[in-house]
Amino acid sequence: MDSLARVASIIEQQHARPGALLPILHEIQDALGCIPPDSVPLIAQGLNLSRAEVHGVISYYAHFRQTPPGRHVVRVCCAEACQSVGGEALAEHARARLAGSDVTLEPVYCLGLCAIGPALQIDETKLHARVTPEKFDALIEAMEAAR
């Protein structure tokens, strides 16, 4: 199934739910890695919204992306609890380490791992705690070796 057909089928299944837009956007992004711009008219039509309204929602929420991410997505927590144990230095180190790589680095404001920071998340579900710059490098190396 090509990606627009996939989008159409997701809309078809979900459009009757009350407040269907966010669940639809999540499902599209989970399936395709992002919400492609050419899916916006389909979503708008399916939910009887304007394209501007759909675009407004996609661009409002940090979680949604309109272009595919890198091969991996690394989210480093930048909130206070992680700051108190070196989170900023870790984020700085991560920026330098991943510059020019095909890994997408994003800030995240709290993963709920506030007693064991600095914390980060790889590809949505893999979590790591008490991450030092050395541990970060080891994680990235392991990630690259696993390809």
């Binding site: 009350p18 407040g19 269907a20 837009l21 966010l22 669940p23 956007l25 999540h26 939910l47 309204e53 407004g56 929602v57 409002y60 929420y61 940090a62 979680h63 949604f64 995240v108 404001y109």
Partner: peptide, 25 residues
């Protein structure tokens, strides 16, 4: 279950309602 999308202010109750209804928070 409704999944948020990375917006802190959606923890504010009325922004949360907007989000559940399918709009910007």
């Amino acid at each position: 279950v409704r999944k948020g999308a990375g917006s802190y202010v959606c923890g504010e109750e009325t922004a949360m309602l907007e989000s559940i209804e399918g709009r910007r928070g």
